[in-house]
């Protein structure tokens, strides 16, 4: 199909201080019904969305971080995380939760969805997109 476009959701906000992160995730889930090529990027405070071990019980708000692990079922298998944004925040890839998808074209092998990329690599990825949605 020629009308498949490349969509990138650009996430720049921390998860619970504002509604952006949750809204972005919901739009991704809804948008995934439209058979487009969707990927997510996490830069600036957006990298905090993927921090592992989130536990919001004492806050009384929903911990939506497990939902990132469902994205593979929705055909969203590329989550780009910017290395510089991690480093500025004292984080490494090991501080992020493991997220995998099953590759249907490779015997359902489990593969990592998170790709840590440099700022310049991400700039290149952004240039390849048809649509970038900012959250």
């Amino acid at each position: 199909m020629s009308n498949i476009k490349k969509f990138l959701y650009l996430n720049r906000k921390a998860p619970y201080g504002s509604i952006y992160a949750l809204e972005s995730l919901e739009v991704v889930l809804i948008g995934a019904a439209f058979d487009q090529q969707v990927s997510l990027a996490f830069i600036d405070d957006g990298v905090f969305q993927l921090a592992k071990g989130q536990d919001t019980k004492s806050l009384g708000v929903k911990n939506f971080s497990p939902t990132f692990r469902a994205l593979g079922d929705y055909g969203v298998t590329k989550l780009y995380v910017e290395q510089e944004s991690l480093s500025e925040r004292g984080l490494t890839a090991a501080d992020l939760m493991p997220i995998t998808y099953e590759d249907e074209n490779d015997g359902f092998a489990e593969k990592p969805s998170i790709n840590v990329v440099s700022r310049s690599e991400l700039a290149g990825i952004m240039r390849e997109q048809d649509v970038i949605l900012s959250f």
């Binding site: 998860p15 619970y16 071990g53 989130q54 004492s58 971080s65 939760m97």
Partner: peptide, 11 residues
């Protein structure tokens, strides 16, 4: 503390 824990930074 609760705000740290929520964000996965309680360790």
């Amino acid at each position: 503390g609760p705000d740290l824990t929520a964000r996965g930074l309680g360790g």
